[in-house]
Design a protein around this nucleic acid. Sequence first.
RNA 1: GGGCGAGUGGCGGAACUGGUAUACGCGGUGGACUUAAAAUCCGCUGCCCAAAAGGCUUAUGGGUUCGAGUCCCAUCUCGCCCACCA
Length: 951
Amino acid sequence: MKRYNPQEIEAKWQEVWADGKTYEVSDKADRPKAYVCEMFPYPSGAGLHVGHVRNFMIVDAIARFYRQLGHNVMRPFGYDTFGLPAENYAIKTGLPPQETTLTNINHFREQFKRMGMGVDWSRETNTSDPEYYRWTQWIFARLYEKGLAYQAENFQWWCPHDKTVLANEQVEGGKCWRCGNEVEKKRMKQWFFKITAYADELLDEIDNLDWPEKIKTMQRNWIGRSEGAEIEFVVKNTTRKVRVFTTRPDTIFGATFMVLAPEHPLVSRLTNDKTRKAVGKYVTEAMRKTEVERQENKQKTGVFTGSYAINPATGEPIPIWVADYVLATYGEGAIMAVPAHDERDYEFAEKFKLPIKQVIRPLVTGEKNEDAIRRNVISAVVKRPSDGKFLFVKWHKFGWISPVIGGIDPGEAVEEAAVREVFEETGYRTRFIKKLGGEVEKYFFAENKGEWRHAISQPVLLELTEETPSAVSAAEKKIQEPVWLTHDEAMEQVTHPDNKIGLDRFTNGVKNYGLEGTMMNSGAFDGRQSSEVREDIVAWLEEQGVGKSKTTYRMRDWLISRQRYWGCPIPIAYDAAGKAHLIPDDQLPVLLPKITDYQPDDSGRSALAKDKKWLKVTIDGQEMTRETDTMDGYACSSWYLLRYCDPKNAKQAWDKQKVDYWSPVDFYVGGDHAVAHLLYVRFWCKFFADEGLLGFREPVKRLLYNGYINAPDGKKMSKSKGNVIDPLDIVDQGYGADALRVYELFIGPYELDAAWDPRGIGGVYRFLNRVWTVTQEYLAASSAKGGDPADLLKAQHSTAKRVTEDLHRNSFNTAIAALMEYVNELYKLKTSGFSPEWQEALETLVKLLAPFAPHIANELFEQLGHSESIEEAGWPKWDDSYLVASEVEVVVQVNGKLRAKFSVPADTAVDEDEIKKLALSQENVQNFVSGKQVVKTIYIAKNHLINIVVK
RNA sequence: GGGCGAGUGGCGGAACUGGUAUACGCGGUGGACUUAAAAUCCGCUGCCCAAAAGGCUUAUGGGUUCGAGUCCCAUCUCGCCCACCA
């Protein structure tokens, strides 16, 4: 008998697929299409490790599954080749990125082929190929014509190490995403793509995407739409105006000062002789600070400009300050500060002794209204650990606890029984008493002693039922009366030096519970609810011409300029006057010249600036100088999904018909780029649709976001940690690509991270070996006997069903488990020769296995006597009639606990009375039922489960 | 601080709409084959009890239900993302 030899059969089938161009597809097919691909990789010099390849295996399994289902499946591959790592490598070695990139691609392609990936290689795409980036430039031109590519001078993130500006998305925790060095702010003229023009659609359409919630939430947060108002404050004794954005126009009467960001253009004009020096110093220092330094020091700093603005609501002058807690890049770069109702403003006001004016009375303070009491107050019983006794308290969410009585004096320790008694007496119906974990520090006012107390307790929370008898609530109100504090009184208590509660707790209270409430100190608006008055205040300001509704986004425009060599050149040139001109379409591509000195410098221009010859260009007979910035690599990757549909087109970026046939992508698989790339592809797609270049507005129908495979120690695999596992090592150890593929999908759900277990692959290899062996035994025997065909058919059909359903919900690990069970079953049934049932059982096995382990599946399918491919043979169907068992096992529970099982013929299982009789006659059931009264029985025919309830 | 997600054996994990918890694999263990080992094959393997019977068990506490890993409330722990966004 021939042994399972992965090396041999894998080489054979990889050759068959390559020679036969098996996976090349065209858009001319009368089958339903399926477009499946992964986020294309950056081909690094290090090659792939077993962590990277999982998403390729997911894609390949899906692609093969849909091919077998009869779909016209496009499964392309490509390389994201522009970018910093290749250029840094060129600087280090002097080797041109054009060459190293091709070397790396060749390495990747080889690795990829040896995994047995079913790829349409005719669609291979490389973003640094002039035939590709020519169209990236063409897209830039279209964006430029529509005003969606523009230049602006601005403060930008600058990486001093890589000497380039970075997009917001590329700054991670104040550090460069590539080199990890701290970034700085630098004022530069840069190119932007106006993604904010599509902010609303990008946000609203998220709801309709079949994407993981996690990614959708991240995109929503990233776009960060805030509805509010834009309000103008006139600077006192001038005609100058400071514009602010606020989401809380209702608090305008409480705006007691203003704050500008250090970068705000008006700062220098608002200073006077006295303040100029201090403000200048503060601004310089703030600008010099790196983002990390600004984040580390959350202590409020700031300086007074010397100017005042007029609060348009009150007419009062309020001081204008400069502080770096206000961000230049959000809203108007200036705020109206309302210290009474904003934590950050409160902190600032406290530090610089600025006035605090309360304009909203939070519901919880002073409101003697039952609703408010119920919503904002939790009744609690504090249990003292030392003696297990209880203390009744009522907890204000302002961070301290005051006692509520109800028959027991505050501070009095009582037995648990007494606690229950009181609750019964007062009519509170307790739903539960529960222990909370850990100790809690509480401050409470001991009424009988007339002083504030501090306690460490283990609280036991007690929730009240909804209906509290009116007699009780009246009594409760009476008791509570002295405890309720107004906002001012509360603040007094809290800030009193003898009180240990501290400001933190109080401001937390304000933040969480003081934001909405009843208006006060707000003129005509007093007495109304803050949430209801917002629009009216905006309307009132608008009448005076000083405000209007406005929506602001957290997302900024996409900065695409890179002062680097190895990127797609921006197709722009400047005339003698410095005016920008598009390079005409017929002069595209703007080829990236081959140079020798790649080193960037502090000039703010890329190494391209050193190529004097390249710099010169003639447009319409006019001599001009080329733009030396290149585009962010994300620009190149924002449209490759479209190019895959028409990769060889030399006349246009793509043919609309072809793209409309294949797109949108049915399955897009990756484990990275949750916001950046996945937002940019959506943005460009919408733009192309508006230009009439596409017939759809969302490029990715379904997104599968896969988890990482980590090293056995649970850490990320990386070259520097030396814990990288090369997939080809696993293959060459003798396990083969099939075992590797099956293992990576079997290790756990695809969306979760998993740790590589070197022993796990052995189990999977054993499984494939058993698949091989059971088939060989069948083929080798000559006479026709074997297991009971009924058992065989049942196993075959139920496995087909399970695997199909699991694949439809991308549950690869359970699909493989089902196949393992099937093989174990085949082993038990023991074939020893040909029979039509066994032939079909094994063909089904091999077909179901093909998406995961295509080499062994194709080999065995051939050995089973087929010359056509597995794809042509199609996906196994199942017949539910084989799944119906002749006998079923009835499960008997008594009071929900399993007590007995017995078998009955399937047609008996529908007879409830009969089942009940049989259940009660079971010996072990009688042990639990006899002497007790059967209250009722519940029979669930679907699960053939009966539950007997006794008392 | 905010948002999202997750806690099930020694380990990775299974249980689709509430209905026999621990499928499948790893590891462990006993046996067969072998002079021996590897490979392979066949058992056993959540915990407590000598075994049977029984009891306990899906982070913790509670609720709803005939019945809860699954639904609800609270608490704890871990992970990821965002983070002075007005």
